[in-house]
Design a protein around this nucleic acid. Structure first.
Length: 866
RNA sequence: GCGGACGUGGUGGAAUAGGUAGACACAAGAGACUUAAAAUCUCUCGGAGGUUACUCCGUGCCGGUUCGAGUCCGGCCGUCCGCACCA
């Protein structure tokens, strides 16, 4: 027997699959389809272990479903627009397109080495005008349907580089390149009106039964539906005569009598008026903005406020006025950008009240506390109770009080309209898609001084990115390009300018799954194709996309339905979110990170290979370039082969959890690949290579072999159906151990039924591990003399009768503790099992008092309670 | 800060419906084969006690429900992820 040579074998079968077109999806729409998709990669240059994990999982599903007879669509493409290409252009003076396409071609080669069963004929890259022209078409279709709008929004502005910064480019409030203090600036930008669908996106989550609960919960919270009261405070002391009211939103109208202040966002319209001739307010607002633009930063920042001097009238307490503060924790994006604060029953309001010495008036009394003894210290009371200190609400429950307030306030009229009404608010905001960058899909709009916003006419699509761009000066190259933006207005033919913003790359990835169905269609999608292939049956990717990408895709699907491109709402019927790949980290004595290949073990002490210096092993973290704890998949594939890499990445760790890459584990996987090869070869020799027709009768021994075979079919099929790849592999190990022991016990099999049973086992074995280690499986299939390509074989059929047992093992407990076990015929009565159990010495010994009751779970457990 | 998850031997993990905790693997140790090594094959492997039979303890911590809890409930501790311009 020759040692298994992964280099030769893997290349051979990859070529064979290619030349036989084994993995092309069929356009025969009468077949039952299965669409499996992994989130497509950003072409950063090299594949990483996260990709290996993601694409291997998808590949196992694709191969398994193909074997189950489905017409499988398993495509691959590139999320090819984005900032890194522009950074490369600036740093290395290489054109973003050139950089991107080099990376794509490099990564494509690397992916091919993994032996993925991908239909490469459908490959797409989002930076290709062939792709993005259709995105422009979709944008215009959405625009006409009112799904697109323009509004002002804030961006991070680097005043030195004169450029907009992404959140990740702002480090400690400073620009990453210039180091300048980042400012916030308002720009008019394009938005998709995702909030139109807020309720639909929320309510249809329930129907996504094959999505992880946690992702649905996260989306649910993200959309953040809340029902409350929106009402106007009348202003008593105003900044000017135009300001008559401030409108607030609250989910706790029942606490209105506990209100002690009103707070507005720093960019509330009223603040803009106040700010004009007030230096103090001006500097306060600057301070608010310096705390950062992300939600996390804002909410982590210390709660600060500024008393504006404006006062409003309490709607129900005569002569009571509330001070209006500007507060950094009130957000313009949510509700009305203004709130009333009830410190006794909201922690944030309480912290604020303590800081500025405001009244704390409790209005909800907990059930078990007396009125006089209920004191709020430093913890707000948010629980249930009875309303008090609240005039006409006293004695009511929270719910009753809410209803009463809503009713009363809607009857108050201000200038003839109700002072307030019940209102549903969402946390979800419209999706800002404008980016002031070059390497993205141009937004197909023309701005005319006279006619305003104009669509680019259909005949002029696509709007292509210019090739000749200059990255030597900071800022958007499209803006700075000498000619590109200069066009005639399609309406009046006068001079006009193109929109120089490009799309957020999330737009590109919000519909690529639909494009894969008909990647060459001359409209965004071909209706017949998408109607057949969509939805994606199994989508697999990182949990970091649980909210944005998935929500945007769900929105796009709805918008494409409304514009007659699709006929469904939900793009992904099954979703799986995989964990990350982690590795130990290493640091040298001066605290520099080291690559794993720079470290070796001297005895049990890690040392630097070159210098011999001691190395500290740090915590296990997800692989990242900055910490250098990365393992290059290509070198793993070269050393051990693709099957080993695939095997390791699927073994042991459940797919949704983080997996730790270890050298030992990779070596063990490699050894196991060799072991399979040996078992198959040894197996062939104990049946002397025989092929036997199915005999009429089976010996006990051969029935045992068939039991092993069919038990394995059941276990591995179950595991794969549920994406429990680690368990599928554990069952392969188990099966291998069984086969090993048959081989050890029998130098040669002679009985016809045993020969038949063992050959069945050998063939089944190869088929069962084929989705995980496909190259090895093809080669083994050939060695055992089977024809054709195993990747095209039908999945082995489970025959139930071979795995049926007539006896069961029943555990006998006394007071819940195991005291023995008995093997009895299946389906025995409680009395019979009881009698058998009492015969066990250890059981009768431990029953030292009267039996109180006996619990019997048929065929499982008997518990004697004394 | 808000939201979401996770926590089981030296290690990764298994336990599908509340019913034998530790499948399978890694590491470690012992043995067989070999002139030797590698490879391969076989066995042991949560802790404590006991010659064996077996007993007690044990799934982050504290409490609860139950005949029975890794699994369900309440509270805590720890770790990780997301937070709208990274993709």
């Amino acid at each position: 027997m020759e040692r298994y040579n992964h280099r030769e074998v893997e290349e051979k079968w990859q070529n064979k699959w290619d030349s036989e077109k084994v993995f092309l999806a069929s356009e025969d729409y009468s077949k039952q389809k299965y669409y499996v998709l992994e989130m497509f990669p950003y072409p950063s240059g090299k594949i990483h272990m996260g990709h290996v994990r993601n694409y291997t999982m998808g590949d196992v599903v694709a191969r398994y479903k193909r074997a189950r007879g489905f017409n499988v669509l398993h495509p691959m493409g590139w999320d090819a627009f984005g900032m890194p290409a522009e950074n490369a252009a600036m740093q290395n003076n290489i054109h973003p397109a050139k950089w991107t396409y080099q990376n794509i071609s490099n990564m494509r080669e690397q992916l091919k080495l993994l032996g993925l069963s991908i239909d490469w004929s459908r490959e797409i890259a989002t930076c290709d005008p062939e792709y993005y022209q259709h995105e422009q078409r979709l944008f215009l279709d959405f625009y006409r349907k009112g799904l697109v709008g323009r509004k002002k929004s804030k961006v991070n502005w680097d005043p030195v580089d004169n450029t907009v910064l992404a959140n990740e480019q702002v480090i400690d409030g400073k620009g990453w390149r210039s180091g300048a203090e980042v400012e916030t600036k308002e720009l008019t930008q394009w938005f998709f009106n995702i909030t139109n669908y807020a309720n639909d996106l929320l309510s249809k989550l329930d129907k996504l039964s094959k999505w992880p609960e946690k992702v649905k919960t996260m989306q649910n919270n993200w959309i953040g539906k809340s029902t409350g009261l929106q009402f106007k405070f009348e202003i008593v002391i105003a900044p000017d005569d135009d300001c008559k009211t401030i409108e607030v939103f609250t989910t706790r109208p029942d606490t209105l009598f506990g209100a002690s202040f009103v707070a507005v966002a720093a960019d509330h319209p009223i603040v803009k008026k106040l700010e004009k001739n007030n230096r103090e307010i001006n500097s306060f607002i600057k301070e608010c903005r310096s705390k950062g633009t992300t939600l996390a930063e804002i909410e982590k920042a210390e709660k600060i406020g500024f008393n504006t001097g404006v006062k409003v009238k309490h709607p129900f307490i005569k002569d009571k006025n509330l001070d209006v503060y500007i507060a950094n924790f009130v957000l313009m994006e949510y509700g009305t950008g203004a709130i009333f604060g009830c410190p006794a029953h909201d922690q944030r309001d309480l912290d604020f009240a303590r800081k500025y010495d405001l009244d704390v008036i409790p209005v909800v009394l907990p059930e078990d506390i007396e009125k006089g003894k209920f004191i709020i210290e430093n913890e707000a009371y948010t629980g249930n109770g009875t309303i008090f200190n609240s005039d006409f609400l006293d004695g009511k429950t929270i719910e009753e009080a809410k209803d009463t307030i809503v009713e009363r306030i809607s009857k108050n009229l201000i200038d003839g309209s109700p002072q307030g009404q019940k209102k549903i608010t969402y946390r979800l905001r419209d999706w800002g898609v404008s980016r002031q960058r070059y390497w993205g899909c141009p937004i197909p709009i023309i701005h005319c001084g006279d006619c305003g916003v104009q669509e680019v006419p259909d005949d002029d699509l696509p709007v292509r990115l210019p090739d000749d761009v200059d990255f030597s000066v900071p800022g958007n190259p499209l803006e700075k390009h000498p000619t590109w933006k200069k066009v005639k207005c399609p309406n009046c033919q006068k001079d006009a300018v193109r929109e120089t913003d490009t799309f957020d790359t999330f737009v590109d990835s919000s519909w690529y799954f639909a494009r894969f169905c008909s990647p060459k269609a001359n409209q965004p999608v071909n209706r017949e194709s998408v109607d057949y292939w969509l939805p994606v049956d199994q989508y697999i990717g990182g949990v970091e996309h649980a909210i944005l990408h998935l929500l945007y895709s769900r929105f796009f699907t709805r918008a494409m339905k409304e514009t007659d491109h699709l006929s469904l709402d939900e793009p992904f019927s099954g979703l799986f979110t995989q964990g990350m790949v982690t590795h130990e980290t290493y640091k040298d004595s001066s605290g520099n990170w080291l690559f794993p290949e720079e470290v070796m073990l001297d005895g049990s002490n890690p040392v630097h290979i070159k210098t011999g210096d001691a190395v500290t092993i740090g915590p296990i973290e997800s692989m990242s370039k900055s910490k250098k704890n990365i393992i290059d998949p290509q070198s793993i594939v070269e050393t051990f082969g693709a099957d080993t890499a695939r095997w390791f990445i699927l073994s042991d760790t459940p797919p949704e959890r983080d997996i730790q890459w270890t050298d030992k584990g990779a070596e063990a996987s490699s050894r196991f690949i060799q072991r399979i090869w040996k078992i198959v070869n040894d197996g062939m020799s104990i049946i002397s290579g025989n092929t036997i027709d199915e005999p009429k009768e089976f010996t006990e021994n051969s029935l045992n072999i068939r039991k092993i075979t069919h038990k394995a079919i059941k276990d591995i099929t179950d595991a794969l159906e549920n994406l429990r790849f680690n368990r599928a592999i554990a069952h392969i190990y188990e099966l291998s151990n069984e086969m090993q022991s048959i081989i050890n016990k029998n130098k040669k099999l002679n009985d016809i039924s045993e020969l038949y049973a063992f050959r069945e086992l050998l063939e089944t074995y190869c088929q069962l591990f084929a989705p995980m280690a496909p190259h090895l499986a093809e080669e083994c299939w050939k060695i055992i003399g089977c024809n054709g390509i195993i990747s095209q074989r039908e999945w082995p059929q489970l025959i139930e009768k071979y795995i049926q047992e007539d006896t069961v093992l029943i555990v006998v407990q006394v007071n819940g503790k195991k005291r023995g076990e008995i093997e009895v015929a299946k389906g025995l009565s409680k009395n019979e099992v009881e009698a058998a159990a009492m015969k066990i010495d250890n059981v009768s010994k431990s029953i030292n008092s009267k039996i109180r009751k006996i619990i019997y779970v048929p065929n499982r457990i008997l518990n004697v309670v004394i």
